[in-house]
Protein backbone atom coordinates (compact mmCIF):
# COMPACT_ATOMS: atom_id res chain seq x y z
CA UNK A 1 0.00 0.00 0.00
CA UNK A 2 1.36 3.44 -0.88
CA UNK A 3 1.41 6.34 1.50
CA UNK A 4 -1.87 8.23 1.11
CA UNK A 5 -0.51 11.74 1.65
CA UNK A 6 1.78 11.59 -1.37
CA UNK A 7 -0.93 10.75 -3.87
CA UNK A 8 -1.25 13.88 -6.06
CA UNK A 9 -5.05 13.88 -6.29
CA UNK A 10 -5.33 13.82 -2.52
CA UNK A 11 -2.79 16.61 -2.11
CA UNK A 12 -4.81 18.81 -4.45
CA UNK A 13 -7.94 18.39 -2.39
CA UNK A 14 -6.10 18.92 0.89
CA UNK A 15 -6.96 22.62 0.87
CA UNK A 16 -10.65 22.10 0.28
CA UNK A 17 -10.56 19.36 2.87
CA UNK A 18 -9.14 21.85 5.37
CA UNK A 19 -11.90 24.33 4.48
CA UNK A 20 -14.50 21.60 4.89
CA UNK A 21 -13.16 20.72 8.31
CA UNK A 22 -13.07 24.38 9.34
CA UNK A 23 -16.70 24.80 8.32
CA UNK A 24 -17.55 21.59 10.15
CA UNK A 25 -15.90 22.86 13.32
CA UNK A 26 -17.69 26.19 12.97
CA UNK A 27 -21.08 24.56 12.51
CA UNK A 28 -20.40 22.24 15.44
CA UNK A 29 -20.05 25.19 17.77
CA UNK A 30 -23.62 26.28 18.38
CA UNK A 31 -22.46 29.46 20.05
CA UNK A 32 -20.68 30.65 16.92
CA UNK A 33 -23.91 30.14 14.98
CA UNK A 34 -25.82 32.15 17.56
CA UNK A 35 -23.13 34.83 17.27
CA UNK A 36 -23.33 34.81 13.48
CA UNK A 37 -27.11 35.23 13.59
CA UNK A 38 -26.82 38.09 16.09
CA UNK A 39 -24.18 39.80 13.97
CA UNK A 40 -26.37 39.38 10.92
CA UNK A 41 -29.24 41.10 12.75
CA UNK A 42 -26.96 43.88 13.91
CA UNK A 43 -25.69 44.43 10.36
CA UNK A 44 -29.28 44.37 9.11
CA UNK A 45 -30.24 47.17 11.49
CA UNK A 46 -27.04 49.01 10.61
CA UNK A 47 -28.21 49.11 7.01
CA UNK A 48 -31.95 49.53 7.48
CA UNK A 49 -32.46 50.54 11.14
CA UNK A 50 -33.16 54.18 10.29
CA UNK A 51 -35.56 53.23 7.50
CA UNK A 52 -37.49 50.65 9.48
CA UNK A 53 -37.89 52.78 12.58
CA UNK A 54 -41.58 53.21 13.39
CA UNK A 55 -41.12 56.94 14.10
CA UNK A 56 -38.55 58.20 11.57
CA UNK A 57 -39.32 61.81 12.52
CA UNK A 58 -38.00 61.14 16.04
CA UNK A 59 -34.78 59.75 14.60
CA UNK A 60 -34.35 63.02 12.71
CA UNK A 61 -34.68 64.94 16.00
CA UNK A 62 -38.43 65.57 16.14
CA UNK A 63 -40.01 65.77 19.59
CA UNK A 64 -43.46 64.99 20.89
CA UNK A 65 -43.68 66.59 24.34
CA UNK A 66 -47.27 65.51 24.81
CA UNK A 67 -46.15 61.88 25.03
CA UNK A 68 -43.16 62.16 27.38
CA UNK A 69 -42.04 59.16 29.42
CA UNK A 70 -44.68 56.72 28.25
CA UNK A 71 -44.06 53.27 29.69
CA UNK A 72 -43.46 50.43 27.19
CA UNK A 73 -46.71 49.56 25.40
CA UNK A 74 -47.84 48.16 22.07
CA UNK A 75 -47.49 51.52 20.35
CA UNK A 76 -44.07 52.17 21.92
CA UNK A 77 -42.56 48.75 22.80
CA UNK A 78 -39.54 50.42 24.44
CA UNK A 79 -41.52 53.42 25.76
CA UNK A 80 -40.74 57.07 25.10
CA UNK A 81 -38.07 59.36 26.50
CA UNK A 82 -37.95 62.83 28.04
CA UNK A 83 -38.67 64.45 24.68
CA UNK A 84 -41.49 62.06 23.87
CA UNK A 85 -39.38 60.27 21.27
CA UNK A 86 -39.94 56.58 20.61
CA UNK A 87 -37.04 54.72 22.27
CA UNK A 88 -37.33 51.76 19.89
CA UNK A 89 -36.83 54.04 16.89
CA UNK A 90 -33.78 55.67 18.49
CA UNK A 91 -32.26 52.32 19.43
CA UNK A 92 -32.79 50.95 15.91
CA UNK A 93 -31.27 53.99 14.28
CA UNK A 94 -28.47 54.06 16.86
CA UNK A 95 -27.19 50.76 15.48
CA UNK A 96 -25.97 52.53 12.37
CA UNK A 97 -23.87 55.06 14.26
CA UNK A 98 -22.34 52.56 16.69
CA UNK A 99 -21.56 49.81 14.20
CA UNK A 100 -20.32 52.13 11.47
CA UNK A 101 -18.08 53.94 13.93
CA UNK A 102 -16.84 50.69 15.43
CA UNK A 103 -16.09 49.26 12.02
CA UNK A 104 -14.30 52.41 10.90
CA UNK A 105 -12.15 52.35 14.02
CA UNK A 106 -11.17 48.71 13.53
CA UNK A 107 -10.51 49.24 9.84
CA UNK A 108 -8.31 52.31 10.36
CA UNK A 109 -6.53 50.61 13.25
CA UNK A 110 -5.92 47.54 11.09
CA UNK A 111 -4.63 49.55 8.14
CA UNK A 112 -2.20 51.59 10.22
CA UNK A 113 -1.19 48.64 12.39
CA UNK A 114 -0.68 46.25 9.49
CA UNK A 115 1.41 48.78 7.61
CA UNK A 116 3.57 49.55 10.63
CA UNK A 117 3.90 45.89 11.57
CA UNK A 118 4.70 44.76 8.04
CA UNK A 119 7.35 47.45 7.58
CA UNK A 120 8.89 46.68 10.96
CA UNK A 121 8.87 42.93 10.51
CA UNK A 122 10.04 42.93 6.92
CA UNK A 123 12.87 45.40 7.31
CA UNK A 124 14.08 44.48 10.77
CA UNK A 125 17.05 46.41 12.16
CA UNK A 126 16.63 49.91 13.51
CA UNK A 127 13.36 50.55 11.67
CA UNK A 128 11.84 47.59 13.47
CA UNK A 129 13.31 48.77 16.76
CA UNK A 130 11.94 52.32 16.44
CA UNK A 131 8.46 51.29 15.27
CA UNK A 132 8.07 48.64 17.93
CA UNK A 133 9.24 50.90 20.75
CA UNK A 134 6.68 53.43 19.52
CA UNK A 135 3.87 50.91 19.60
CA UNK A 136 4.93 49.68 23.04
CA UNK A 137 4.80 53.29 24.14
CA UNK A 138 1.31 53.76 22.75
CA UNK A 139 0.21 50.65 24.64
CA UNK A 140 1.30 52.16 27.96
CA UNK A 141 -0.83 55.26 27.41
CA UNK A 142 -4.33 54.60 28.72
CA UNK A 143 -6.32 54.30 25.48
CA UNK A 144 -9.61 55.70 26.70
CA UNK A 145 -8.02 58.78 28.23
CA UNK A 146 -6.01 59.42 25.05
CA UNK A 147 -9.12 59.04 22.94
CA UNK A 148 -11.06 61.33 25.24
CA UNK A 149 -8.34 63.97 25.16
CA UNK A 150 -8.06 63.92 21.39
CA UNK A 151 -11.81 63.86 20.87
CA UNK A 152 -12.29 66.78 23.23
CA UNK A 153 -9.59 68.79 21.48
CA UNK A 154 -10.90 68.03 18.00
CA UNK A 155 -14.42 68.89 19.07
CA UNK A 156 -17.52 66.75 18.96
CA UNK A 157 -18.50 64.86 15.83
CA UNK A 158 -18.62 61.47 14.21
CA UNK A 159 -15.37 61.65 12.24
CA UNK A 160 -13.40 63.27 15.05
CA UNK A 161 -14.50 60.56 17.43
CA UNK A 162 -13.41 57.82 15.02
CA UNK A 163 -10.01 59.45 14.51
CA UNK A 164 -9.53 59.84 18.25
CA UNK A 165 -10.24 56.19 18.97
CA UNK A 166 -8.24 54.85 16.00
CA UNK A 167 -5.18 56.68 17.26
CA UNK A 168 -4.89 54.27 20.18
CA UNK A 169 -6.12 51.22 18.30
CA UNK A 170 -3.27 50.27 15.94
CA UNK A 171 -0.40 49.04 18.18
CA UNK A 172 -2.06 45.68 18.82
CA UNK A 173 -2.21 45.00 15.09
CA UNK A 174 1.33 46.22 14.56
CA UNK A 175 2.62 43.71 17.09
CA UNK A 176 0.52 40.87 15.70
CA UNK A 177 1.47 41.48 12.07
CA UNK A 178 5.13 42.02 12.87
CA UNK A 179 5.31 38.69 14.67
CA UNK A 180 3.57 36.89 11.83
CA UNK A 181 5.73 38.55 9.18
CA UNK A 182 8.92 37.63 10.98
CA UNK A 183 7.93 33.99 11.33
CA UNK A 184 6.57 33.85 7.76
CA UNK A 185 9.77 35.41 6.47
CA UNK A 186 11.75 32.51 7.84
CA UNK A 187 9.50 29.90 6.27
CA UNK A 188 10.95 27.79 3.54
CA UNK A 189 8.68 28.98 0.81
CA UNK A 190 9.77 32.57 1.25
CA UNK A 191 13.44 31.67 1.06
CA UNK A 192 12.57 29.70 -2.03
CA UNK A 193 10.80 32.67 -3.61
CA UNK A 194 13.79 34.84 -2.84
CA UNK A 195 16.18 32.35 -4.26
CA UNK A 196 14.41 32.44 -7.62
CA UNK A 197 14.76 36.22 -7.61
CA UNK A 198 11.39 37.62 -6.52
CA UNK A 199 11.51 41.29 -5.55
CA UNK A 200 11.04 42.13 -1.84
CA UNK A 201 7.70 43.81 -2.57
CA UNK A 202 6.46 40.73 -4.40
CA UNK A 203 7.60 38.51 -1.57
CA UNK A 204 5.76 40.71 0.91
CA UNK A 205 2.50 41.03 -1.00
CA UNK A 206 2.28 37.65 -2.68
CA UNK A 207 3.84 35.38 -0.12
CA UNK A 208 3.77 36.92 3.34
CA UNK A 209 0.64 39.05 3.66
CA UNK A 210 -1.83 36.44 2.36
CA UNK A 211 -0.68 34.13 5.13
CA UNK A 212 -1.35 36.61 7.90
CA UNK A 213 -4.89 37.39 6.82
CA UNK A 214 -6.46 34.79 9.13
CA UNK A 215 -5.06 36.02 12.43
CA UNK A 216 -5.80 39.63 11.45
CA UNK A 217 -9.41 38.80 10.58
CA UNK A 218 -9.79 36.97 13.87
CA UNK A 219 -8.44 39.94 15.78
CA UNK A 220 -10.69 42.32 13.83
CA UNK A 221 -13.79 40.33 14.63
CA UNK A 222 -12.85 40.12 18.29
CA UNK A 223 -12.07 43.86 18.32
CA UNK A 224 -15.36 44.90 16.73
CA UNK A 225 -17.19 44.48 20.01
CA UNK A 226 -14.64 46.49 21.95
CA UNK A 227 -14.63 49.25 19.36
CA UNK A 228 -18.42 49.53 19.67
CA UNK A 229 -18.02 49.68 23.44
CA UNK A 230 -15.41 52.42 23.19
CA UNK A 231 -17.58 54.48 20.86
CA UNK A 232 -20.46 54.13 23.30
CA UNK A 233 -18.16 54.98 26.21
CA UNK A 234 -17.17 58.29 24.61
CA UNK A 235 -20.84 59.02 24.00
CA UNK A 236 -21.60 58.17 27.61
CA UNK A 237 -18.90 60.53 28.91
CA UNK A 238 -20.34 63.23 26.64
CA UNK A 239 -17.41 63.58 24.24
CA UNK A 240 -18.77 61.55 21.35
CA UNK A 241 -21.57 62.06 18.91
CA UNK A 242 -23.97 64.77 20.09
CA UNK A 243 -27.75 64.56 20.04
CA UNK A 244 -29.94 64.59 18.05
CA UNK A 245 -27.88 61.92 16.24
CA UNK A 246 -29.04 58.79 18.07
CA UNK A 247 -26.13 56.91 19.61
CA UNK A 248 -26.45 54.21 22.29
CA UNK A 249 -23.91 55.63 24.72
CA UNK A 250 -25.32 59.14 24.49
CA UNK A 251 -28.88 57.85 24.92
CA UNK A 252 -27.79 55.97 28.02
CA UNK A 253 -26.00 58.94 29.50
CA UNK A 254 -29.04 61.23 29.09
CA UNK A 255 -31.53 58.75 30.46
CA UNK A 256 -29.40 58.13 33.56
CA UNK A 257 -30.93 61.16 35.18
CA UNK A 258 -34.43 59.71 34.77
CA UNK A 259 -33.79 56.49 36.66
CA UNK A 260 -35.33 54.66 38.45
CA UNK A 261 -38.81 55.88 37.48
CA UNK A 262 -38.28 55.87 33.73
CA UNK A 263 -35.89 52.92 33.64
CA UNK A 264 -36.88 51.91 30.09
CA UNK A 265 -35.13 54.93 28.61
CA UNK A 266 -31.83 53.51 29.88
CA UNK A 267 -32.34 49.75 29.82
CA UNK A 268 -33.11 49.34 26.12
CA UNK A 269 -30.18 51.26 24.61
CA UNK A 270 -27.92 49.46 27.09
CA UNK A 271 -29.30 46.05 26.18
CA UNK A 272 -28.92 46.78 22.46
CA UNK A 273 -25.30 47.67 23.07
CA UNK A 274 -24.68 44.54 25.12
CA UNK A 275 -26.34 42.22 22.58
CA UNK A 276 -24.49 43.70 19.61
CA UNK A 277 -21.13 43.35 21.36
CA UNK A 278 -22.05 39.87 22.61
CA UNK A 279 -22.85 38.78 19.04
CA UNK A 280 -19.53 40.03 17.68
CA UNK A 281 -17.62 38.40 20.52
CA UNK A 282 -19.36 35.04 20.08
CA UNK A 283 -18.66 35.14 16.37
CA UNK A 284 -15.07 36.24 16.88
CA UNK A 285 -14.52 33.43 19.36
CA UNK A 286 -15.87 30.89 16.87
CA UNK A 287 -13.83 32.35 14.03
CA UNK A 288 -10.69 32.12 16.08
CA UNK A 289 -11.27 28.42 16.65
CA UNK A 290 -11.77 27.90 12.94
CA UNK A 291 -9.24 30.22 11.31
CA UNK A 292 -6.48 30.26 13.87
CA UNK A 293 -6.17 26.72 15.17
CA UNK A 294 -2.89 27.54 16.86
CA UNK A 295 -4.73 29.74 19.33
CA UNK A 296 -7.12 26.92 20.17
CA UNK A 297 -6.99 25.53 23.64
Amino acid sequence: MTDIATTPAVARTARSEAMRRALFRFRQSKLSIVGAVMVFLVLFFTAFGGLLAPYPEHVAGGVDTANRFLAPSVGHPFGTNELGQDVLSLVMAGTTVSVAAGFAVVLIGTLIGTTVGAIAGFNGGWIDEVLMRLSDLMLTIPGLILAMAVAAALGPGFVNMILAISLSWWPGYARLVRGEVISAREEVYVSAARAIGASPARVLFRHILPNIVSPVIVKMSLDMGFAILTVAALGFIGIGVRPPTPEWGTLLSISRSYMPDFWWTAIFPGLAMFLAVFGFNLLGDGLRDVLDPRARR
Binding site: L229, A232, F236
Partner: peptide
Protein backbone atom coordinates in the same frame (compact mmCIF):
# COMPACT_ATOMS: atom_id res chain seq x y z
CA UNK B 1 -18.05 36.06 26.72
CA UNK B 2 -21.19 37.75 28.03
CA UNK B 3 -19.17 39.38 30.81
CA UNK B 4 -16.58 40.89 28.51
CA UNK B 5 -19.37 42.09 26.23
CA UNK B 6 -21.10 43.96 29.03
CA UNK B 7 -20.39 47.69 28.95
CA UNK B 8 -19.07 48.60 32.39
CA UNK B 9 -21.14 51.76 32.57
CA UNK B 10 -24.33 49.92 31.67
Amino acid sequence: IAAISMPRFF
